[in-house]
């Protein structure tokens, strides 16, 4: 980890995001201030339309804020060019989405190699897959894997480039609770073993127990921040 650890991983002030204009304007974010230290596992909770994914997209360099400032360490994400944001995403950020977005004609190992090919200092695809417990399934195609295994391949793909930040948007949304717990265990292991800052967006409020920090979104704002003194293991979570 080469980040300037004296700075938080993320800090934002007055982040606003408006889609459309005039009477049709939709305010997705209404002035979000937050601070997330490096190395934490953060769970973001909130109902649909509360602005969670929009905030993740802005912090992940996938979208731009309408107003306000957002920093990753000392990088001002709100002032970066498209090319700089691409470099930011390539070198610092991993993404895991609800739907796994795996290439159906590539094996698990090859799906991970898609990322290791363009990353600066990646781990091997086999190592990444071993980290998510899929060392026995490296030569299987996505169609031969269960939903949970496919999501773990997606996580392996996201962590293979050793990202400092891992964004997970509803990673258990398409999984049953038992498989979801396995995926959450993998995410917690990634946080602890690689030291990556992990942000998990979820509807499942019970997930909050495994986080260092819980951000609750409501109506485009952060309505509550909870710091967990003691965390529960994913195996204890039920939803």
């Amino acid at each position: 980890m080469t980040e300037k650890l004296s700075l938080p991983a993320f800090r934002s002030t007055g982040i606003t995001k408006v889609y459309g204009s005039g009477a049709a304007a939709v305010h997705a974010l209404r002035g979000v201030d937050l601070e997330i230290p490096f190395g934490e596992l953060v769970v973001v909770l909130g109902p649909s339309g509360s602005g969670k994914s929009t905030m993740l997209n802005i912090l992940g360099g996938l979208d731009r804020a309408t107003d306000g400032e957002a920093f990753y360490s000392d990088l001002n994400l709100t002032e970066m060019s498209d090319a700089s944001l691409t470099q930011y995403r390539r070198h610092h950020v991993g993404f895991v989405f609800q739907f796994y977005n795996l290439m159906p004609s590539l094996t698990a190992r090859e799906n991970v190699e898609l990322v290791t090919e363009i990353a600066d200092d990646p781990m091997s695809a086999d190592e990444a897959l071993a980290l998510v417990g899929l060392e026995e399934r490296i030569n299987h195609f996505p169609a031969q894997l269960s939903g949970g295994e496919q999501q773990r391949v997606a996580i392996a793909r996201a962590i293979a480039k050793r990202p400092n930040i891992l964004f997970c948007d509803e990673p258990t949304g398409a999984l049953d609770s038992a498989t979801g717990r396995t995926v959450l265990r993998v995410l917690m292991d990634v946080n602890e073993s690689l030291g990556a800052t992990v942000l998990i967006i979820t509807h499942a409020a019970a997930t909050a127990g495994m986080a260092d920090r819980v951000l609750k979104f409501s109506d485009g704002r952060i309505s509550d921040v909870i710091i967990n003194k003691t965390k529960v293991s994913p195996e204890e979570i039920a939803w």
């Binding site: 290439m103 590539l106 898609l114």
Partner: peptide, 13 residues
């Protein structure tokens, strides 16, 4: 490269 493999397999399919 994995992309070359993907091209080959997609064409074969």
């Amino acid at each position: 490269s994995p992309l070359d493999k993907k091209l080959g397999r997609d064409l074969w399919r």
